[in-house]
Design a protein around this nucleic acid. Sequence first.
DNA 1: GGATTATGCTACTGTTTCCGAAGCAATCTA
DNA 2: TAGATTGCTTCGGAAACAGTAGCATAATCC
Lengths: 118, 118
Amino acid sequence: MPRPRPLRAPLPGRRVRGSSSGRPIMAALDLLGRRWALRVLWELRERALTFRALQAACGGLSPSVLQQRLAELGAAKLVAHDGASGYALTPLAGRLLPALSALDGWAGEWAASLTRAR
Amino acid sequence: MPRPRPLRAPLPGRRVRGSSSGRPIMAALDLLGRRWALRVLWELRERALTFRALQAACGGLSPSVLQQRLAELGAAKLVAHDGASGYALTPLAGRLLPALSALDGWAGEWAASLTRAR
DNA sequence: GGATTATGCTACTGTTTCCGAAGCAATCTA
DNA sequence: TAGATTGCTTCGGAAACAGTAGCATAATCC
């Protein structure tokens, strides 16, 4: 029989990888430091997407991995699936968007800096 | 003979995982969405650390992975090793700190929100 | 000088995670 | 009713990661 996949979503207040303190930032770094997690949030930043549209937006990542990330982000209350339009950020995740915007802005600086250095 | 490890550090302007656009944000999401990458930056946010101190600060991650992440972050000019005090953020990475701060602040909200929901 | 310590790694062996393709059941759509 | 779409699941192979051990170099102590 197929062993049920574990789903160890890091949440604040729990032990997470590399930290037993339970500090929220540690859980956040663990959750968002998994492959595709940040990208998924980024792609959902301004509209909901269906599973397959989200998969395409992320450059065709494996559905198995997408499903796993969505389950983790769902357990963390960052993403929810509303029957109609697909997967969308929760209001809680919406408050994370300024940080993602900051990252986007920084990435521009980063690129400029690396280009100058060449 | 030891096969030379690849070191495919995502950089702006290049094809990265899940995006061929070369847009800086995509490279950033790829680079920082790797295991321990964000955590390493976080641990270095206010002081330089030696390899081993950094390893301990990250809860004892494998030296092989730490070495890999440091090489990638080094290629991206985010981390540098100065002979004396160890590994430190570059000024460029310093400008990423506000985003990490925002993430830290948000994580607090996140934890509070999840606690209320229980 | 010899021993001890700390440093930055590298090698090796397993486990976990991820990829990529295929396919399936349950809706919608024409 | 025949597609088309949606959300997933399964599976085998590849890549990434974990964990332990150990090495070479340099500084420090006696």
